[in-house]
Design a protein around this nucleic acid. Structure first.
Lengths: 189, 189
DNA sequence: ACCTGAACACCGTTCAAGT
DNA sequence: ACCTGAACACCGTTCAAGT
């Protein structure tokens, strides 16, 4: 809630309140009328600041991605560093289920991968992977992280008695992808 | 459109018309009023047959999955047969974008994997994989197929100049997963 | 530049009433 | 058993009007 002073409303005020509602109650709960109420303003004034609901939701995605702290690589070997980056991003994203749902709805999923993209590309270069090969591995990792997170957020409970743990499954395929990479010269393996 | 006779409306009539609308114009276009109009009936009569919109959408998913033809394994080796099953399911699902979107929205994604589940499990058994190990590989393949398809339907064009082909990417990770499997005794490798 | 109320064209759902 | 119209409580958006 913005301060109750006489300062005029800004687009940022609107987006921040929208983020608050989406975070707390999901994207469906973000109606223009509710948003206006929460801001203590007429519905129509929202439109002056953010255009319409579509544009507002895109702004909300941007805001949520910016809020995500930087994911850091750990360990010495590049394989290990990539594993920690992938797991780190997965964890960070799963903590923001509304972002995941929203980004998917609005076909903006790949933007969720950006916070680690450069870091992983750097590690691939250390491994001597460049050009099309690096591109392909990078995309494979992107699809794996983003889509796993996408799916994990919507699993219907399977009929099976002995459910496989999602984290374990994530690591399994991640390892399989990394096994296609060349071992690093200074890798202690 | 059902025949214009005096026969009373059935739940199947409603679901079939709903499938038609979803297939042609997407799930958003499926409003109770439009559906009623298309059936030449009052809105309220829909509720008598299918409960409400939620239940109707679940029925639509069931219908769409049933409509999907059986995916068949090809080739002699189990590795090859699993590859063809995975690719076949992927192709079949991608031909039904509305199913994918709908199933995801309604947290029913894993049902899309059912048409090939038993067939893949059989191949894993041939490879000597049983119990928890088989379960894990099966789930990894499920996550891979379903989530790839999920993501592929919503890719925002990436900024990169030289886009990696989605099919190639799918095969790349699929191969990586299969590389973790034991080679079959009678496999001609 | 910023905000308002009224109005339009939609939604899903309920319910009492008809045959 | 099956279908109806009226009504309720919502939506997003536009637009002319205010300051």
């Amino acid at each position: 809630m913005r301060t109750t002073g006489t300062r005029p409303l800004t687009a940022d005020d609107v987006v921040e309140e929208a983020v608050r509602i989406v975070d707390a109650h999901g994207a469906d709960a973000l109606t223009m009328r509710r948003l206006a109420d929460e801001l203590g303003v007429a519905v129509t004034s929202i439109y002056w600041h953010v255009g319409n609901r579509e544009e507002l939701l895109d702004a909300v995605i941007d805001h949520l991605i910016e809020e995500m702290g930087t994911v850091r690589a750990r360990g010495r070997g590049s394989h290990e560093r990539i594993v920690t980056l992938a797991h780190g991003l997965r964890r960070t994203l799963l903590a923001r289920p509304q972002l995941i749902a929203l980004a998917h709805e609005r076909a903006q999923t790949t933007r969720m991968f950006q916070p680690v993209q450069a870091a992983i590309a750097r590690e691939l270069e250390v491994l001597g992977l460049t050009g099309a090969d690096a591109e392909r591995t990078l995309r494979a990792l992107q699809v794996h992280v983003v889509s796993s997170v996408l799916l994990e957020r919507t699993v219907d409970r399977l009929g099976t008695e002995d459910p496989v743990d999602a984290l374990d499954l994530f690591g399994f395929t991640l390892d399989a992808i990394l096994a296609t990479l060349p071992p690093h010269a200074t890798d202690p393996s």
